[in-house]
């Protein structure tokens, strides 16, 4: 029977204690994900995305609050939770190198108690879909990182989980492989009503394209949670500009932030030029920003007014861009 919520957390908390300090990885996360949703966690490294996934997959105990997956408590009904979930993590080269691709996949179906004949049928189908059919008998140690990641993605789907956790699944994949994985994830959800996917990513476009709803998480707190369209719509009353300039100094950014009506400014430094994302309350504030450019001896190369993106939403909520967060992390 399908539960009301595929995932439900209330005031979920997690702290890591070291000799030097206590780190709050999750600080009161409230979530409600319905069956059938593709739910995204968007945030920089260290935001709390993976910690949340670890708790929901029963790998880590919460320090406080409650979490339920498919109606079962992760703390007291972990075995029941495990019957309904699977997980794929990206950016790692896991797998038993001495086993073939088929053997690796078959082994995990057996951990889930699947009938061997059914398991092999599903393995064949998914190998075909992911373009790995000709590698079924190849030892995993001979696979590239990208192919291993595809194999791991198949492992996640093989057991037909009710809730599939994809933790940065496209990390390290080439464009084509990432697209295949995204397309199939959407297809899997469309053809299996009620199945739920929880995706963590720090690729804005991935979250925008794939997710029904996105939670923007930073510092262990959810700052906003809505559909990508609604999140972007929240910025519709603001004006978003993209400026390319000669390199600007931190003092310029500080000066711009002081101007009344500037919602946020973020900087991405490139080769000989900077890209600035600027969110203003209205167009009339732009001349003041441009005059600051001149004051700080920077030149304007191009200027473009554009529709808000998830990145803009993120900058507006967090105060800096995702790439800046990662540099800091």
């Amino acid at each position: 029977m399908q539960p009301e919520y595929a995932i439900r957390t209330v005031n979920l908390q997690r702290t890591y204690k070291t000799k030097e300090r206590v780190l709050k990885a999750l600080d009161g996360v409230d979530l409600a994900v319905r069956p059938g949703e593709l739910f995204g966690f968007l945030g920089p490294n260290g935001a709390g995305k993976t910690t949340t996934i670890k708790i929901l997959t029963t790998l880590l105990l919460p320090s406080g609050g409650t979490a339920e997956v498919w109606g079962f408590d992760v703390l007291h009904e972990a075995d029941a939770v495990r019957r309904h979930i699977n997980m794929v993590s990206g950016g790692e080269s896991s797998g038993y190198g001495l086993l073939t691709v088929r053997e690796n996949l078959w082994m995990f179906t057996q951990f889930h108690g699947m009938d061997s004949k059914l398991a092999n049928k599903r393995i064949d189908e998914l190998l075909e879909v992911m373009g790995l059919a000709d590698r079924a008998k190849t030892r995993v140690s001979f696979l590239s990182t990208g192919l291993r990641q595809k194999m791991n993605y198949i492992r996640g789907l093989l057991t037909d989980p009710d809730v599939l956790f994809l933790d940065e699944p496209t990390l390290g994949l080439d464009v084509e492989a990432a697209r295949t994985l995204r397309t199939y994830t959407r297809h899997w959800l469309d053809t299996n009503p009620g199945k739920t996917v929880v995706l963590t990513t720090h690729y804005m476009q991935e979250a925008d394209e794939l997710c029904d709803r996105v939670a923007i998480i930073s510092g262990g707190t959810i700052l906003a949670c809505d559909t990508p369209t609604s999140l972007k719509y929240s910025l519709q009353q603001d004006v978003v500009f993209r400026l390319f300039t000669t390199p600007v100094a931190p003092a310029f950014l500080q000066a711009v932030e002081q101007i009344e009506g500037v919602q946020s400014i973020s900087q991405r430094s490139g080769d000989q030029r900077d890209e600035l994302s600027l969110i203003l309350r209205d167009d009339a504030i732009l001349p003041q920003v441009l005059s600051q450019l001149a004051t700080h001896n920077a030149g304007l190369l191009s200027l473009e007014k554009r529709q808000p993106t998830l990145e803009d939403v993120f900058v507006n909520l967090v105060g800096h861009s995702l790439s800046e967060s990662e540099t800091t992390a």
Binding site: L59, Y96, F108, F111, H112
Partner: peptide
Amino acid sequence: MGMLKYIAITP
């Protein structure tokens, strides 16, 4: 192998 976590989340 990086696989213990995947075994740990199986039933």
